[in-house]
Design a protein around this nucleic acid. Structure first.
Lengths: 200, 200
DNA sequence: CTTTCATAAATGACTGTTCATTTATTAATA
DNA sequence: TATTAATAAATGAACAGTCATTTATGAAAG
């Protein structure tokens, strides 16, 4: 006994919300803007997600799930663990192709940090990313790309910090492209621990 | 020709604004909250700073000037350039002693990035910090703490990214204290380039 | 008396939320 | 099969609250 079918799917609405956040930031986000984007009306969004905050929670949950799923199939088709690591870094910034969008999405993440329920999902994403980084570093050691004995756990934390931090410096000084700066920063960090570095 | 003297100084108001931002975030910032903090009334702030945005611009300007002045006298009393560098990292997070406050101040920085006028001051702060980091790294090379031939420019960029990024990871997983994690991350990054590392 | 600072009240715009109503679809009944 | 009931989705108008800003007025100094 189903009633009227939904005109637009939840995931479409959430994607629209993410798009709006990227454009006007989390503070400028309004139900009217999201509703406009998908051809609905503000009240409908409240009825479907309970409240504005409910929509944001749903968005955080979807993002977390998507990120986890993405990390699973990251190694496929990459020539080496370290190349896969660089790909992870770049693709984690997929939605942030301009300094403004990066800033707005980062601001959304900051908002997450002050709301217990949102923080939960942000933490899931964060730990999934660190797990993926650590796995790739361990694999790099196993395959001989990195020196045996490397403290991969400490390195993983630094790599993760470097990814977010490089995005921020890029958004500030706006020089070059983000992918190229990520590549430079990460390879610079890992260079002293690579095998070929031993020949120096 | 002075009329009635001001009850509270501009700098006091701006400090209060920074405090409010740290507590409720830039989105939750309201003129009423700031006015309350200093014992004034919202309208007064509008008259003195032109608008809410004017107050934020003034805050950004003051922060930039304070940061520049602070970097000047950073080397004094520090045993070594690298120790001074660690001090710089820790003190740049002075206002962000809790994960929430870090998140809120970072969100304010993100807001800066989308407003041309605010971005200008954020850029000044950013470049002043990078200049200070670079100077300390160069000094470390000159004094023999770091290997000669080290690419200090590239390293400075990484250090700066690492500072902000480590703050973010700390705000997310909330493990340990920020100073100790900053110290670990930065020394880890620099370790391969230190002199004593050559003995390996 | 003029100038500057501060106040208090009022305004106007914006926004999340609610509610009654309409629309579209499925299930049951004769 | 044709018709009716039940259900969920969506609408549009209205509500209530918040907040920055403006205006008119008073107070404190030179």
């Amino acid at each position: 006994m189903a009633g009227r079918p939904r005109g637009v799917d939840d995931s479409v609405i959430l994607r629209a919300a993410a798009e709006v956040i990227g454009r006007v930031g989390p503070a400028g986000l309004t139900l009217a803007a999201v509703a406009d984007e998908v051809g609905l009306v503000p009240g409908t969004l409240v009825q479907r997600f309970g409240s504005k905050r409910g929509l944001l929670v749903a968005l955080a949950r979807q993002s977390a799930h998507e990120a986890e799923a993405h990390h699973e199939r990251l190694r496929q088709g990459r020539p080496s663990p370290l190349e896969a690591l660089l790909a992870l870094a770049e693709e984690s910034m997929a939605l942030m192709d301009t300094p403004e969008r990066f800033a707005n999405h980062l601001a959304f993440l900051c908002m997450d940090l002050t709301d217990p329920q949102l923080h939960e999902y942000a933490l899931v994403m964060h730990e999934a990313q660190r797990g993926a980084i650590l796995a790739l570093l361990d694999e790099a050691v196993a395959e001989g790309e990195l020196r045996t004995g490397t403290d991969t756990a400490a390195l993983a934390e630094s790599v993760q910090a470097l990814i977010a931090g490089t995005g921020l410096t890029w958004a500030l000084d706006r020089q070059g492209t983000l992918p190229e700066r990520l590549r430079r920063a990460i390879t610079g960090l890992l260079a002293p621990h690579t095998r070929c570095e031993e020949k120096r």
